[in-house]
């Protein structure tokens, strides 16, 4: 499958889509968006890349094995949920910073949890897409 239009478009779309996915993740708590949809968009961008070029190059563009994202994402999600235990509160209590950061606003454990969701979704979809696509090559 070689299409000049697709491959050229994808080259420019990949960074834009990734940026968009992070944007969705960051605004998710107050505006439409969130870790799940952000992860889907990010996964889609790499899936397109795999289509336009091939899986090998998509993997190279990703740099890290997608399976690693699953583990890291789950670890981040669980850690964010466990943090409250150390403060003597029950599991998964949301803990927020007092100060407001530029761009992010207040940062809380639910946001970090959402980052975990983002990574898991990205990892899961790319693991499946890449394994399926590798069967063809």
């Amino acid at each position: 499958m070689t299409s000049v239009i697709l491959s050229t478009a994808t080259r420019y779309m990949l960074p834009l889509l990734l940026l968009f996915s992070v944007f969705l993740l960051l605004r998710g708590h107050s505006e439409p968006g969130g870790g799940f949809v952000g992860g889907l968009v990010a996964a889609a961008s790499f899936a397109f890349y795999a289509f336009a070029y091939n899986v090998k190059q998509a993997r190279r563009a990703l740099r890290i094995n997608p399976r690693v994202f699953i583990g890291v994402g789950l670890l981040i999600a669980v850690s964010s949920a466990t943090y409250s235990l150390f403060l003597g509160k029950s599991f998964m209590t949301g803990i927020w910073t007092e100060t407001e950061f530029p761009v992010f606003g207040a940062i809380g454990t639910p946001f970090i949890f959402d980052v975990g969701v983002y990574l898991v979704v990205l990892g899961v979809i790319l693991t499946i897409v890449f394994s399926l696509a590798e069967g063809e090559q």
Binding site: G28, H29, S30, E31, P32, G33, G34, G35, F36, A77, V78, A81, M92, G94, W96, A106, G108, P110, F111, F113, D114, V117
Partner: peptide, 19 residues
């Protein structure tokens, strides 16, 4: 701390399900 109810449910109120 979130205006997006859908996302707040996903990551906070029902975060355990999401996990």
């Amino acid at each position: 701390h979130g205006h997006n109810v859908v996302n707040v449910i996903l990551v906070d109120f029902r975060g355990f399900d999401t996990m």
